[in-house]
């Protein structure tokens, strides 16, 4: 499309403005973590590493991080198995209610987190508590897995739809049984999609707070719950800022991984 000079410049400015809006708040958080002042008065008065030290010594923080990692791994494992099974069923077979299955998978992520959260909370209270299973890491994993299934499902079924069946047919013709074909032919072909799905599922779980609030119970604190809890405490401001900065820096890791995976 042939644009005149003025509209080109206007669009470039809009793009620059958009990127600035996206990145300035994150940069401010990063800078503030080295701000000597406790109140984040802007502009910063001096450079200091004491908040990073304080965060390192924060006892609840490491426990929360470990809880988040375990919850993320648990939810990802469940989502990988269930999402992959559902993806195979939905792409390789035609059956009554196939649309309903897809809809059911999307529902947990389409409905507001708070609705999913209080629904699971009410169900756990009525079903699990009488069985002697209290709220804790297990209920968090169940909650997270419910909305993580769809991302694995989407990735794997997108890959399966583009995968020709000829490889599997050839494997069967050569005498491999169903499981051998799956292990040696199908699984390597969908490995990238499984990895992408797992990465997304873990990120989704690691970041989730709403469903977590209603499924964690008093003794279990994930990292987002820790952050939210400490946001309300004025004295903890700098430490929260350090944690936020660390998460911003860490977020480059999945970006880099995703970039590498999509590169030809």
């Amino acid at each position: 499309m042939h644009l005149n000079r003025r509209s080109r410049i206007a669009l470039r400015l809009a793009m620059a403005l958009g990127l600035a809006v996206l990145y300035v708040p994150l940069l401010v958080v990063l800078l503030n973590s080295f701000n000597a002042s406790r109140s984040f008065a802007w502009p910063p008065t001096g450079f200091s590493l004491r908040w990073w030290q304080a965060a390192w010594q924060e006892p609840g923080l490491r426990t929360a991080l470990w809880t988040s990692v375990r919850a993320g791994l648990g939810a990802t494992a469940v989502a990988l198995v269930l999402g992959t099974m559902a993806a195979f069923a939905a792409t390789r077979y035609r059956f009554f209610g196939r649309q309903a299955v897809s809809f059911l998978l999307i529902l947990p992520i389409a409905l507001p987190g708070i609705v999913t959260g209080i629904a699971l909370n009410a169900a756990f209270r009525t079903v699990l508590t009488p069985l002697g299973i209290g709220f804790g890491l297990f209920t968090v994993i169940v909650g997270h897995a419910t909305f993580c299934i769809v991302v694995v499902f989407n990735n794997v079924s997108a890959r399966l739809r583009r995968l020709p069946g000829s490889g599997e047919d050839a494997s069967a013709d050569l005498g491999a049984h169903t499981f051998q074909t799956f292990w040696y032919i199908t699984l390597p072909a969908v490995r990238g999609a499984l990895f992408a799905g797992a990465l997304l599922a873990f990120a989704l779980s690691f970041d989730e707070i709403v469903v977590t609030t209603f499924t964690a119970g008093p003794g279990t604190q994930t990292l987002p719950l820790w952050i939210f809890d400490n946001l309300a405490r004025p004295n903890q401001g700098p430490v929260v800022d350090v944690v936020a900065s660390a998460l911003i820096v860490l977020s480059a890791l999945p970006v880099w991984l995703a970039h590498r995976m999509s590169a030809p």
């Binding site: 994150l26 503030n32 802007w42 970041d207 707070i209 800022d241 936020a244 911003i248």
Partner: peptide
Amino acid sequence: LVAVTAPLWAGYLVKAYAWWVMLSHGGV
């Protein structure tokens, strides 16, 4: 495309907190 999607990975709370910092009195 990477630049626009990258902040998605930074996390919900981190970004809400970032705007709390941006918007607070005496802030940027």
